[in-house]
Design a protein around this nucleic acid. Structure first.
Lengths: 252, 252
DNA sequence: GAACCTCAGTGTTCTAGAACTCTCTTCCGG
DNA sequence: CCGGAAGAGAGTTCTAGAACACTGAGGTTC
């Protein structure tokens, strides 16, 4: 990173197996290798990349660690169903979380609209029912595939400012922080398992009735005032929550 | 050829590099290798275990993935600082310990049975596929209503002991701790959203196809050996995950 | 029909090196 | 005193196999 290797001769000192993994990642990302498809067997792959079996396997190792493929002894190597681990212990935000794993994350703004808050939104934001709020609808894409549908609601004073920013380019939390000086310090999140509604399913490119996570989150600033309410839908086959638990019991 | 242990059929066939990782894990766990200590260099370690560098490195790979060691190019291999995750530790279990909330919780034992481990179970418990495991099926009732269906799997040596206890009366973790001296110190849990199968729905008293949480958990003892695998189903309308998030001054 | 056997295809483990890179220390020339 | 060169010690990448183990399919036997 810092040590800039500009000396042309070596240039790319990326290990062979990294490059192979990259090439395969490409094939998977581009759809050339669809989810569930079986790759060539390892010996063939090794030969086609001109490396040893061991080297190829190192590449597969990388991909498996990222859940891009699964290997099954005696059967073959398969493109994994797209599914993402959300390490619930890491409080990093969604986008940051995934990009840390080397996936390409994009956000598509589906629309913004002022309207009346529904009951849950009003309650969460401590507004009177039917108060005017700004609603944002965004689709998160991971490697080009829809991952989650996010509906955010902001109280109209804040919303008035936010709506002037280019949300297609600037993440919401940056708009809040740098344009409005509002910093989110904590949040409360509730996750439940639901059936996808028709509209949500359409936007997410799957069938209505599919099981999904629904996460409702209220974010607060340091003063404890609610700033934004998010409702996120994530199809169950594209997402997992993992966490580590530590039981202390021993010394008590 | 090399000391292959042909003992019986159970648990044999553990790859060399797994055993080496286990041995090192032991040294680290016992304090023989303190945090921050540098291990022998890889070639020496390989020699002392009587394997090739490549094989030894596979063992180190495992340990690094578990954050037990860190490797630094040009410097050496070090026992990792026990840094990770002090804070958030919600020690309560995901599906357990609802009793903390004052509800009346009961457990009904639906059945116990020895059988062959399925792929996920075998993998999680590090057994060979189709190894014999004890399966327990339990229904958790909160205030008399079915809340969750829990299927637990234990390796047969442990299962043999467990099955003699009166699980209708004694919680599993107590049986493990007081009858077998096995203490669960940590676990890894993965939660996904699924559709309930017919059998599960029947036991839980709801309709097949309903959205539900599925939690898979592997519990480990202090030595890092997997002890029990749990698969829990909870209908989506009966349960929510709630958590508080605190964003530190991370400037990213 | 059920249970067993065998076999081809595929992933997994392991060997015995060789060459390379990275970090730090030491030493030499200025 | 400073700055670079040299070297030692450590991790990393890669080769060219060989032997082993798992899965599923298709026969064979009872």
């Amino acid at each position: 990173m810092n040590g800039v290797r500009m000396d042309g001769k070596l240039g790319a000192r990326v290990p062979r197996y990294h490059r192979i993994a990259e090439a395969l990642r490409e094939r998977i990302g581009s759809g050339q290798l669809a989810a569930g498809a079986r790759l060539d067997n390892q010996r063939k792959l090794a030969q086609s990349f001109g490396v040893t079996l061991m080297t190829l396997r190192q590449a597969l190792e990388l991909l498996e660690r990222d859940h891009l493929i699964t290997r099954r002894h005696g059967l073959g190597t398969f493109v994994a169903a797209p599914s993402i681990d959300y390490d619930i212990l890491q409080l990093r935000r969604f986008a940051g979380d995934l990009s840390a794993k080397g996936e390409h994350v994009a956000t598509r703004l589906l629309g913004t609209r002022f309207g009346a808050a529904d009951r849950r939104v009003a309650e969460a934001l401590r507004l009177s029912p039917n108060a005017r709020v700004l609603g944002l609808e965004r689709l998160r894409l991971v490697d080009g595939h829809p991952m989650s549908l996010q509906r955010s609601f902001l109280p109209s004073p804040i919303g008035d400012e936010v709506v002037r920013a280019d949300l297609a380019l600037t993440p919401l939390h940056q708009v809040l922080e740098f344009k409005l000086g509002v910093v989110i310090t904590h949040a409360r999140e509730t996750v439940s398992a639901v059936r996808l509604g028709r509209r949500e399913a359409r936007d997410l490119g799957c069938r209505a009735g599919e099981p999904a996570f629904e996460s409702e989150r209220v974010s607060f600033n340091a003063a404890g005032a609610p700033i934004v309410f998010d409702r996120v839908f994530i199809p169950g086959d594209r997402f997992r929550i993992t966490r580590e638990l530590h039981y202390e019991g021993a010394s008590s």
